[in-house]
């Protein structure tokens, strides 16, 4: 029984580490345009880095038919856009302050993050 309990506790630790504590490898900073595929429950890429003061166009290409994937929202920017199926939808963001801007579907199942960094740190 001790082994079973230990396995259970290890599983809990794995869940906590994998979903909350794991530091996702940060991608190179992007500029100009980034194509984000919306498919199979995830945004690809889900993490985008950019420099402060630059303009970026996020081009969402939705391949997933699920109802949830049909809207992307950036809560901090009070921005919400419908994503047409099998078509692109461009969202241009300009002059963002440094910080982290989450984007997600209405049900929070799809999740992504746009990280705006100070140029000096980038």
């Amino acid at each position: 029984m001790i082994i079973v309990n230990l396995i259970g506790l290890v599983l809990i630790v794995v869940v906590v580490w994998w979903f909350w504590l794991y530091k996702v490898k940060t991608p190179d900073t992007a500029s100009g345009e980034v194509i984000i595929k919306v498919e199979n429950g995830v945004y690809e890429p889900a993490l985008i880095r950019m420099h402060e003061g630059e303009k970026i166009t996020l081009i969402f290409l939705r391949k997933d038919r699920s109802a949830c994937s049909s809207v992307v929202q950036f809560d901090a920017l009070e921005l919400s856009e419908e994503l047409p199926l099998d078509k692109t939808k461009s969202i241009t963001l300009d002059s963002l302050d440094t910080g982290s801007y989450s984007f997600n579907c209405q049900m929070q199942m799809y999740k992504g993050k746009l990280i705006v960094e100070d140029k000096k740190n980038g």
């Binding site: 994998w18 429950g41 889900a46 799809y110």
Partner: peptide
């Protein structure tokens, strides 16, 4: 299939959802 593919992709992405 769509549940399992979605779950696997989310898992690789360190996120979890209804799938």
């Amino acid at each position: 299939k769509h549940f399992y593919v979605g779950a696997w992709k989310s898992f690789l992405n360190h996120s979890a959802n209804m799938d």
